[in-house]
Amino acid sequence: MPDRYLDKLEAETIYILREAYNNVSPLGMLWSMGKDSNALLWMIKKAFFGKVPFPLIQLETGMELPEVYQFRDKLVNEWGLELDVHDCPPEGDMDKSLPPATRSAMRKTEGLKSLLGNDGYKGIIAGIRRDEQSMRAKERVFSPRSIDGDWDFKNQPAEIWDHYMSEVPEGAHLRIHPILGWTEIDIWRYTQRENIPVVPLYFAKNGKRYRSLGEKNITFPVDSDATTIEDIIKELETTKTLERAGRAMDSESENSFELLRTRGYM
């Protein structure tokens, strides 16, 4: 069975989710309504027999595309989700020395910090993947963040044979990355196989589609004729464009994404 590998990936993700739920409390998941976090949310329902046993959090900037908000409201209703919509501070409060798109992306980082401060989360589940970006390629599955929310990438703990760290100092927290080892094409194959809903913006309209969804001021569609998931999979099998090519904050300067991530971006 050529798709047996999806079962293996799914089993690994479910194992990580159950480890997080057993060892880390309070725990919450960031939901961006994008394809990755939808697939992850689906696997949470599988891991916990139809339930989402911890809060689902949306970092709200008011800047998502309208189709994304429509999708959110529909899925919340259909899946009976309890969503905690957390407002992020305005762009004017961000570090002025950062390049504009990076500054804009920084809002979610600050929003997350205020959420952590208010609700005292010890673990935050995020649907990032190693193949998205070279900084994320160096991530751990259970990745500690300091009290300031910073990522000390030079001093990451060892992570061996599915034994994950679960203790962090008071005020610090863990980022938990259950789909770190999945690729973009894996997510699409799984989304298709499991029939998981996605925002229609991923499908091409007038020769353009969104490959990665972000806020409307800093995310742009790419050239594509893919109108179905099969088309998307075919496109990905041959493309040489980066998934996040339409995300302005990734490439404003050589280290703009490193700056964002070390300061606590997802």
Binding site: P2, D3, Y5, K8, T183, N195, P197
Partner: peptide
Amino acid sequence: MAHSAKYIPPTKDAEKL
């Protein structure tokens, strides 16, 4: 929103080594 197209498995061994 949900897509009903039939699932097509990958053509080569997609398990990553």
